[in-house]
Amino acid sequence: MNKSKTVSSNPSVISDFKEITKMRLALSVVFSSLAGYLLGVDIISYSELILLAFGGYFMVGASNAFNQIIEKDLDALMDRTKNRPVAAGRMSVTTAFIIASIFTVLGIIILYSINKQTAMFGAISIFIYTCVYTPLKTLTPISVFVGAIPGAIPFMLGWVAATDNFGIEPGTLFALQFFWQFPHFWAIGWFLYEDYKKGGFFMLPTGKQDKGTAVQVIMYTIWTLIVSIIPVFGFTGRLELSIVAAVIVFGLGLWMLYYAIRLFKIMTEKAARQLMLVSVSYISLVQIVYVIDKFIR
């Protein structure tokens, strides 16, 4: 019993490194990037896949490390974040800054080795997340809108990495992940409302756990659902979707919409947490369906 307490109160260097770069989040971003790459590529280059995976990981890791440096004092106020390495004082700001800087340089260099546009979007993502989204979080709920921009880049980034071209196809992928983030993050903002309030973060569109927020969650879920099936209609260039795949994707959208409506009806933190979990599964499953559909069509 005492041993487990010691382990939990004294995280290892490795666990701190995972935390400063938010490894689980970074890996989900890499997954989105690879899905976008597979959708855009004609002939799969495994070397490019590996470069994209590492470049994407470094890009997200850098953003998260810079974020934790900037918010270290606020993180210390919230139960969810008070044990982060910088906030808890286990890692110095200097060390975190060195990690963030190295990750930024490595990420951009690796993405540049794929093509210039991929590196450009990677750099834009880091800049918006660190210099715009992070400062806005304590000022206005509009921060979620701003944060949705870098959050939507990875899916699109994969297509750009595969094609060295930005057009209607990566734009559609961007729109899908962009709209999806609102119900996802507002669900998080809802069930962590009290904790966020300790840090002075404004995450919900109305600032409260009310019907107004719940209605907007439903609206953006519907937009996500609509965008997800646009490729079936044939005007998104090379990004196509079969009728069968569109029906599956539409069904997944209805699944998430059900939980969004449920949040509106019962307005509990448990309902918000369920919506968050469903939203995470939803975006991954949609990306998988898109990729499978491309290769079996």
Rank of each mutant, 00 (worst) to 15 (best):
I124A: 02
P170V: 10
G158M: 14
A161Q: 04
T104L: 15
M120K: 01
W159K: 10
T163M: 13
S143W: 05
G107K: 00
P183C: 05
V160H: 00
F179S: 06
T134I: 13
G158N: 13
G147D: 08
N165K: 15
A161R: 00
L176A: 13
F179H: 01
I142S: 11
T118N: 00
I168T: 03
T140L: 01
T118D: 06
T104D: 11
T163C: 14
A175D: 07
I128A: 03
G147L: 00
V146N: 01
L157C: 02
A175V: 13
S113V: 06
F166N: 09
L139I: 07
L136N: 01
G147P: 06
M156K: 05
F174W: 00
V144S: 02
E169R: 06
S143H: 09
S113Q: 10
K116F: 07
G167P: 10
G171M: 10
L139E: 08
L106P: 10
Y112T: 04
K137L: 11
P183M: 09
N165R: 14
G167I: 01
F103A: 15
P135N: 05
I149N: 02
T134V: 03
W159F: 08
F127N: 04
F127M: 05
F145N: 01
L139H: 12
K137W: 08
F103D: 10
N115E: 06
G171Q: 08
